[in-house]
Simulated scan of single mutants.
Amino acid sequence: MKTSDQPAIAVLKDIGYITAGILICGFALKSFLVPNSFFDGGVTGISLLISELYHINIAYVIIPANIPFIIMGIFQVNGRFAWKTLAAIIGVGICLQFIPYPQDITHDKLLVCIFGGVFMGTGIGLAIRGGCALDGIEVLALFTLKRSSFTISEIILGINVLIFSVAAFKLGLPTALYSVMTYYAASHTINFVIEGLEEYTGFTIISGKSEEIKEKLVLEMGRGITIYKGERGYLKESFDVHHPVDIIFTVVTRLEVRRLRNLVYSVDPNAFMFTSTIKEAAGGVLKKRARH
């Protein structure tokens, strides 16, 4: 493949992700959340709340509700992100207005909050993979982060607590609680869609049989490894006794975690291992995966 073709293919992939995200978000809103007066978190939740309280079509609310955060995104991220986000939000509004999504799929509250959240999270996650956002809450969090001591998660949590508190006061506590479940399902689905099955886990292994473990990791699993020089020993009953040891670090996908653990324990049942979550990894001999 020519190098000049790669940017065009990347653009097409982004468009595909964003289009799929828009359609799925529209489906989640119009087929699950809106007919049952359920809410999500973030700006989408604010839009749903306004639509329910003042009986305004959600298609007319969701676009203007996101405009301030899109403008903020120009300064917090970049202009390209903001324009893509604007186009995606308008796309959601068009879908909600003109696409005849089915509205009588189910009125079971548990099914609505679970599947509404899953579809909503899938749509938002695909849009993020395409390089934009379908909810301005992340941009607001970035803006507030630079002006306060709170983390992004704390900021988003605080905003959502406010949204669900208003929903509980205006529409009743059961509706607010079900909406919290919807948001929980959506947020976990977003993480899964963005990271996928290829989410990475870092493994640190300390063993007296490190040479055998290194050989199996590289030759049997095909993993790259990094070695730290350390010492083992220093036990309470023999504090002065210690030995040099190679501390092994490697990165695997979540599908390989069990295989690696079994491989290490087959060599040394007393090996000490601990894992760490890897949010971003590239290069080396990692399995290739798309990053958007």
Rank of each mutant, 00 (worst) to 15 (best):
V77Q: 11
S51R: 07
I89N: 01
V77Y: 13
I70H: 01
T106M: 06
N57W: 00
I67F: 09
I67G: 02
G130K: 14
I94W: 09
C113Y: 02
I89Y: 03
L96H: 00
I63R: 02
Q97I: 06
I114H: 06
A133N: 10
N57R: 03
A141G: 13
L53Q: 11
C95M: 05
P64N: 10
G121Y: 12
R129Y: 14
I62E: 05
I99L: 04
P100M: 03
Y60L: 11
V92H: 00
Q97A: 10
Q97S: 07
D108Q: 12
L140R: 08
I71T: 10
G123P: 03
M72F: 11
P68I: 08
I71S: 10
K109F: 14
P68N: 07
Y60V: 07
I94F: 14
K109W: 15
P64V: 13
Q103I: 06
L48A: 05
K146V: 13
H107M: 05
L48K: 04
Y101L: 00
V92G: 00
I128Q: 15
N57A: 07
I58D: 05
I128E: 14
F115S: 03
L111G: 13
C132A: 11
L126D: 09
I99D: 06
F115K: 14
F143C: 12
F81E: 12
L140S: 09
G93L: 00
V118T: 11
A141S: 13
H55M: 02
L134Y: 00
F119Y: 10
E52F: 14
C132W: 04
V61L: 01
I50G: 08
A88L: 00
L145W: 15
P100S: 00
Q76C: 04
G130F: 15
G136K: 12
E52P: 03
L140K: 06
L53W: 13
M120P: 06
G73T: 07
A88Y: 03
G136A: 09
A88V: 00
G117I: 05
V92C: 01
G79P: 10
A127F: 03
L126G: 07
N57C: 01
G125A: 05
G91T: 04
L126H: 14
G79H: 07
L53R: 10
I94V: 06
L134T: 02
A133S: 11
A88R: 03
I137M: 12
I124T: 09
L111E: 15
F115W: 15
G136E: 07
L140T: 06
L110A: 13
S51Q: 08
V139Y: 12
Q97D: 12
L111N: 12
L49V: 02
H107T: 09
A127R: 09
G123T: 01
I70R: 04
E52R: 05
I70Y: 01
I99E: 00
I67W: 03
N66Y: 00
V118R: 04
F98K: 08
I56P: 09
P68M: 11
L142Q: 11
H107G: 07
I124Y: 02
F98E: 08
I62M: 01
H55L: 07
I99V: 05
G121N: 11
E52N: 13
L145F: 15
L126N: 06
Y54L: 12
A87T: 08
L134M: 01
G136Y: 11
I128L: 15
I58A: 02
K84V: 04
Q103R: 11
I63S: 01
L49A: 08
N78Q: 13
G131N: 14
M120A: 05
T144V: 15
N66C: 07
F69K: 11
P100H: 04
V118G: 02
I71Q: 13
V118N: 05
